[in-house]
Amino acid sequence: MAEDPIKQMPREAFDAWAAHMGIDTDPEHLDKLYPEAATLLRRMAAVHTIDTSEVDPAEASETVPRDMLQGESS
């Protein structure tokens, strides 16, 4: 299991990163943003646990997968 990303980005680090990104640092706004970002951070940690070694990195720029185009004529 990946380490809990919320532990990796505690609130203080989140606030600092938000300021760096030019996001409004009003505490009330950041209170609302933190849970939204936390959900995404958990998904981000989980996505890195998927083994993608069978994917050629160049394939990752194709919306329609080349495997599904075999036999297709355009």
Partner: peptide
Amino acid sequence: KAQQVRALFGK
């Protein structure tokens, strides 16, 4: 990485 997962999903 998420883009690679997309490609893997496509496979």
